[in-house]
Design a protein around this nucleic acid. Structure first.
Length: 187
DNA sequence: ACATTGATTACCT
DNA sequence: GGTAATCAATGTC
């Protein structure tokens, strides 16, 4: 698993750098809610709202290691690929080739990237506001099967935030479980 | 290495 | 009210 933290208006890499709007208002709402946004017009990214009420903050889920429901995740990934093809995206490849690739994907790669987490869970921006702490929610946070030792967590600079300037692109707010094969490839 | 995508924001009238 | 510029990425070449 792999995450990235995003701060409030001071953080130039955060959506909170904009004035409060319909899209990012969830970031300043109650903690523990979902904030799903569309990036590059194709990929839905899942964030967990953090911090006290009124302060903006969120944690982007960059990658996840599936522990159950891999067949459903695989099916969701194929749906996503099919929709992209009908819009004509992703280079010149065909949907059949994409489906074959997804079928051959190891379980641990089903959600290996921020956009892929959204695709594997079938998320879209409509999930924004879902209470991730409510056991009745279809999307929620639960304790994992094993604890992670502090020494297994690695920290590094965030990905793809060069536009925010050196001060914010260098801050080590990306964290992941060391040696976890589900983390997204290095960039 | 390169092409693809559309919601969202900021700016203009 | 309408338009241009922006982007926390992936997949195929």
């Amino acid at each position: 698993m792999e995450t990235e933290a995003y701060g409030g208006p001071d953080d130039l890499a955060s959506h909170a750098r904009f004035a409060s709007t319909a899209r990012n208002s969830a970031m300043s709402g109650p903690a523990g809610r979902a904030y799903v946004y569309l990036v590059y017009g194709m990929y839905d990214c899942l964030n967990v709202v953090t911090g006290p009420q009124g302060a903006s903050g969120a944690v982007l889920i960059r990658a996840a290691a599936p522990i159950a429901g891999m067949d459903l995740m695989r099916a969701a990934r194929m749906d996503h690929a099919r929709r992209r093809r009908s819009a004509g995206a992703g280079g010149a490849g065909g949907a059949g080739a994409a489906a074959a690739r997804i079928a051959a994907l190891p379980d641990r790669h089903l959600a290996r990237g921020p956009g892929l987490v959204g695709a594997a869970f079938g998320l879209d921006t409509g999930w924004t506001g879902t209470d991730l702490c409510d056991p009745a929610s279809a999307l929620r946070i639960e304790p994992g099967p094993t604890d992670v030792a502090a020494g297994e967590v690695a920290f590094g600079p965030r990905v793809g935030v060069g536009y925010a300037g050196p001060r914010w692109s260098a801050v080590p707010w990306r964290c992941w479980i060391a040696d976890d094969p589900s983390v997204s490839p290095a960039r």
